[in-house]
Design a binder for these strands. Structure first.
Length: 292
DNA sequence: TGCATTTGACCGGG
DNA sequence: CCCGGTCAAATGCA
């Protein structure tokens, strides 16, 4: 099998997996919508499923092989996008779609998997995600927090833990959405150049949706997905998988472009460890060590 | 004790 | 000069 067809096969496999996950998530959501049932197990299941989504997508995303202008709509300055008091998201762009109650956003080309997690993906190195979860597959260290003018919630600043050890320039900014306090706007700036293979995966807490959105003072819970990922990595030993995924990612983007599938971007939660402190009106968010 | 977070100070761009 | 982003000393925590 040549490289092209191999990549195609991988691409299809990834797509299949994601679509399967979508179906499962949809079913579980239906369960959750039913009154009177015990929601605990269902919520856990959703957490796992969405964690898988985020795992895959984060892995793909981390390679940043985005082909020029791909289908991903430019969202230069998307970190400035925010919901005003009327719940409308402001954006300089001209392509908008509805995101939840009262929020319109510029849409990137992506798959539709649900309504938990939406993405403003961009061609280059800055993109914004809206999610109920604050986690991804990278290791972040908080270096600042700022109250932004005319916003209710402070913005937190994070840099890659490996900034100094490996010169990784990736940063991210996190801010609660005023229109939907359950959601966080997460802006990723720059791509990770750190060698995550050097980082020893750690079993760390995984945040559950409910915990994130509550006003709990301190949140830490065990991760299920991290160990799974760890095992997976032991099987793949990294390198070839990475290049495969990079190519797959490119092809996925092109694939979507070719088929004119420009959807609202939605996918699930991550499974990294996240420690969240003081989620009150002056929210402080703190990502702790985690690695791919 | 070492590492992560907090938070006021500082800096640069508009 | 204002504001957003970053720095770095102080503080917290395991």
């Amino acid at each position: 099998m040549d490289i092209a067809s191999n990549n195609k096969a991988i691409k299809l496999k990834v797509r299949d997996q994601l679509l399967q996950g979508h179906e499962m998530t949809t079913k579980v959501q239906q369960l959750l919508s039913q009154d009177g049932s015990d929601l605990g197990p269902a919520k856990d299941l959703v957490e796992k499923i969405l964690g898988s989504f985020n795992d895959i997508i984060s892995a793909l995303d981390s390679f940043e092989p985005i082909s020029p202008s791909a289908l991903v709509t430019a969202v230069e300055g998307s970190q400035n996008a925010s919901c005003d008091n009327d719940g409308k998201l402001e954006d300089s762009g001209d392509s908008h779609k509805k995101l939840g109650p009262g929020c319109s956003i510029r849409i990137s080309g992506w798959f539709r998997f649900g309504s938990i997690f939406s993405v403003f993906r961009k061609k280059s190195e800055t993109w914004t995600v809206e999610s109920t979860v604050l986690e991804d597959t990278f290791s972040w260290r908080k270096y600042g927090q700022k109250q932004i003018l005319n916003t209710k919630f402070p913005r937190s600043y994070f840099r890659c833990t490996h900034k100094y050890t490996q010169g990784c320039k990736a940063t991210k900014q996190v801010q609660k959405l005023e229109s939907e306090p359950r959601m966080f706007s997460i802006t990723y700036i720059g791509n990770h150049t750190c060698n995550t293979n050097e980082v020893t995966p750690k079993i760390k807490p995984c945040i559950h949706h409910d915990e994130i959105i509550t006003d709990s003072e301190e949140i830490q819970s065990p991760s299920l997905m991290t160990s799974m990922k760890e095992e997976e990595e032991n099987h793949h030993h990294g390198s070839s998988t990475e290049s495969d995924l990079q190519l797959v990612w490119q092809e996925m983007l092109v694939f979507e472009e070719e088929h004119h599938h420009h959807h609202e971007a939605v996918y699930g939660c991550g499974e990294t460890s996240t420690s969240i402190n003081g989620l009150d009106s002056a929210d402080l968010w703190s990502w702790q060590q985690f690695s791919v």
